[in-house]
Write a protein that binds this DNA or RNA. Structure first.
Lengths: 241, 241
DNA sequence: TAGTGGTCTAGACCACTCC
DNA sequence: GAGTGGTCTAGACCACTAC
């Protein structure tokens, strides 16, 4: 799990952008300058810059240079697969997580089967957690973690960060996810937990995969519609499907 | 606007995946095989594969190979900035677009100013379009195209594809966008157009930029909540912000 | 014309999987 | 040990911007 040179360079530049050492609207040092600065080859610098481009931190313009984009102005996209604990940390929210349920099961809960009809019977761990920000319930996260590869889940891990536990204790390699966002009617139990007037909630359903393409987790997140906000940064596709 | 070798290779492999010439769950030819197959260097092949990885078409596993992922199973993510016309084409929907309004203005409409309070006064073209699928109204798209760079917009372009007009007629280079998804109360006019019972709609607000970081378009899309579906593919971030 | 980013190459070494 | 992908290099040529 050693970091590559290009990752380190990307990290470093990203940090300097966030600390306003490189300011929005200004140009980064040129690729050849960065090459000598970091003592590496140009292609390696370019890989780092490409990561920042994909994230929306910079925009490269041929013949000119790399411009630092203004994140805050159009709202910070924190995409990728990001856990609540990580979000919490990077946004400095005052937030807490209440674990409502945590139990082993031999098969998926019924409402998971409805939303994920393609899933076969498999044992796992079911976790229900309420996210509370400024004393208001914001999200109800329902997770089903398949066993194997996840055979145990300590309560502290569910309270703190399941992803941290999976990556650092179990040494599993979380890689990618597919998410589907819809608006759905929810049942009274969840309605009450989220303190909703209406029975409509925003549902984010996701499949989460390890590096070896193993599906290790299914998630159903029910969001209070009035608190829901999803921010995305997208680049125009060159490849047509 | 010539296509690079790596783009062509990525296109080619993507097409073969879609036509099931490379099937889900199977391995692609190895990088060295692809290198000889396309008569290019390995780094070029790797750039192509990296694009497919970012799109979620394949997963690379060290020591093994590149696995073709199963798109349909977890719902086809069509992210990036994709226009309705392009979506329509790639999904084979029976859809039509009704242009409700198309006019030049000296400043943003009032409700745009509310949603985009940071915007300054600037002339532009305001377009209101209703997207109808299977005779049901699905989305109301409200666009404000800044002049410059967009000084004219023929009605046919609004009916067919604004993006096609901007890219191919005006030769402008659409590059990236930031999107924010929320749930909002909407006014009666829009409620009626979308034939909603409720006054809640899903709002997708986006800033759209050219390659040179010029903001050329603001969009407010009001979605019928019962028809709304947003699909996303995300990879775990290596860079922490 | 000088400087910028965009693409491509041929080769090297490493870490990992599989047998 | 043979084959896979991951990283890095030094150099080349091109297209574009700015002056």
């Amino acid at each position: 799990m050693t970091e590559s040179k290009s990752d380190i360079i990307a990290q470093d530049i990203a940090a300097k952008i966030q600390h306003q050492q490189f300011k929005a609207g200004e140009l980064l040092p040129s690729e050849s300058q960065l090459t000598t600065l970091y003592g590496t080859s140009r292609e390696t610098v370019r890989k780092a810059l490409n990561q920042l481009t994909a994230l929306g931190l910079i925009q490269k313009i041929r013949g000119k240079g790399s411009i630092v984009l203004n994140l805050e102005k159009y709202s910070f996209p924190i995409s990728g697969i990001t856990s609540f604990a990580e979000l919490n940390k990077s946004l400095n929210m005052h937030a807490e997580t209440k674990v409502i349920t945590l139990k082993k099961m031999v098969d998926l809960p019924e409402f998971f089967k409805e939303k994920f009809p393609e899933q076969k019977r498999q044992p796992g761990i079911y976790v229900e957690r309420l996210r509370v920000v400024n004393n208001e319930p914001v999200v109800l996260d329902c997770d089903y973690l398949f066993s194997p590869p996840i055979d145990e889940l300590p309560k502290e891990a569910a309270e703190k960060s399941i992803y941290d536990y999976i990556e650092n204790k179990l040494k599993l390699d979380i890689s990618y996810a597919t998410k589907v966002i819809t608006v759905e009617k929810i049942d009274d139990k969840f309605k009450k937990l989220l303190q909703l007037d209406d029975s409509l909630a925003v549902l984010v359903a996701s499949h989460n995969f390890l590096n070896d393409t193993t599906l290790f987790q299914l998630t159903l997140s029910f969001h209070n519609p009035s608190k829901f906000k999803f921010v995305d940064f997208a680049r125009r596709q060159k490849i047509k499907l």
